[in-house]
Amino acid sequence: MLREITLQKDYLAGQTVTSIYFGGGTPSLLGREDLQQLLDKLYDTFKISPEAEITLEANPDDLSSEKLKDLRAAGVNRLSIGIQSFYEEDLRWMNRAHNSQQALQCIRDAQAAGFNNLTIDLIYGGPTLTDEGWAANVQQAIDLGVQHLSCYALTVEPGTALDQFIRKKKVAAVDTDKAARHFEMLMQWTAKAGYEHYEISNFALPGWHSRHNSSYWQSQPYLGLGPSAHSFNGHSRQWNIANNALYIKSMEQDTIPFELEELTPTMMLNEYIMTTLRTSEGCLLPIVAERFGTDTRDTLLKMTRPFIDKGWMLLKGDALVLTPEGRLFADGIASDLFF
């Protein structure tokens, strides 16, 4: 990865980096020296903002007091913790390595270690999670003063163990009605607690929006490093090979093993529609006109009329914004608006 940083030194064309993000996988397994090496190399190679958001994904069972000190010393200033639930039954069902006590304690320990910018993941809609349990999970996060919540409906990926269990009737199928109900409840609770629902799955106290996520939704360029990492420079997307051994072999030859996709104007328009409709700012019609033409803007506005009539979308000034009900159907609405 240190070699790849050098090979990719010109990818961002001298732009100032405002976010460094370690994840997915389990980067909390990195030792302090490894993490420090990577950060030092990034600072030596790129123009990093002094106020850069430096996030590391972590599992609760990895966050010992010593580990938290190491992360702080290395320069990490934001943690993304995969809590998923504060209930033992949910964690066992999801086959998580941590328990409910660790889920609670790691947040308190992180705050005590000086991390004042935390985001946690919570999952709703699971078969072991009742409405009351979901309410308690969200309230626990609010009571702990967690600045940012990423909340996702339980999904079943094809070919996973969960998929096989459901097919063999060993566990119940995902209840989509329950997931929708939990999402609606979540929107009400977080709004009451002062959180801004700034993207479909993301809620933040004022001033604590994720720079990393926001840059992605605003189609800002980004560089991904490591196996499977994706990069975007505004007009093309590329992704590294997933195989670790082949990635390392290529790096030893100073070659980046990636596939490249040049984005057509239509692809960029559809991506803009899809990502911006997920945000509270919405799809900005002046930007559509500027980037893709006034005819495209006018056509898009006509296409949205059925959703506006249903109450799923609003035209707020020059922005197309989904209503709370419309957010339940965000992916379907976006796909219906594709050109």
Rank of each mutant, 00 (worst) to 15 (best):
D295F: 11
Q238I: 07
M274Y: 08
K249A: 15
A193N: 14
T299V: 11
R297A: 09
K178A: 06
H230W: 03
D298Q: 10
E290M: 11
H230G: 03
N233K: 03
A242C: 01
S280W: 06
V174N: 14
E271Y: 02
T264P: 09
G207Y: 08
R181H: 15
P221G: 05
F307E: 04
G226P: 01
Y195W: 13
S214C: 03
R291I: 01
F307D: 03
I241Y: 07
L284C: 11
T190K: 13
H197V: 12
H182C: 15
L186I: 15
R181I: 12
D177H: 15
F183E: 13
V288C: 01
M187Q: 15
S201M: 14
I248G: 00
Q220I: 02
S236D: 12
G207T: 10
E199Y: 09
G293V: 06
E196I: 10
E271M: 04
Q238T: 07
L260S: 06
R291A: 03
N240C: 01
A245R: 12
A180Q: 11
M268F: 09
S210L: 03
R297M: 10
M185W: 13
G282I: 06
P227M: 01
Q218H: 06
T266E: 15
G207C: 09
G293D: 05
R297P: 05
E196A: 11
L225A: 00
I256F: 01
G234H: 04
Y247D: 00
L284V: 11
P257Q: 09
S214W: 01
S210Q: 02
L223W: 02
I241F: 07
P306N: 05
S228T: 06
E262T: 14
A204S: 10
I241G: 05
E281M: 07
H212K: 06
Y222I: 02
L269S: 08
K302M: 13
M251L: 12
L260P: 03
S250D: 10
Y216K: 09
L300C: 09
I287K: 08
M268V: 10
S280Y: 08
T190C: 15
A245H: 11
F232H: 01
F292P: 02
R291C: 02
S236Q: 14
T266A: 12
E199H: 10
L246G: 05
A229N: 00
S201T: 14
Q188R: 15
G293K: 08
C283G: 07
Y195C: 13
H209M: 10
L223Y: 03
A229R: 00
G224M: 03
S250R: 10
F292K: 06
A193Y: 13
L263N: 11
N202F: 09
H235D: 11
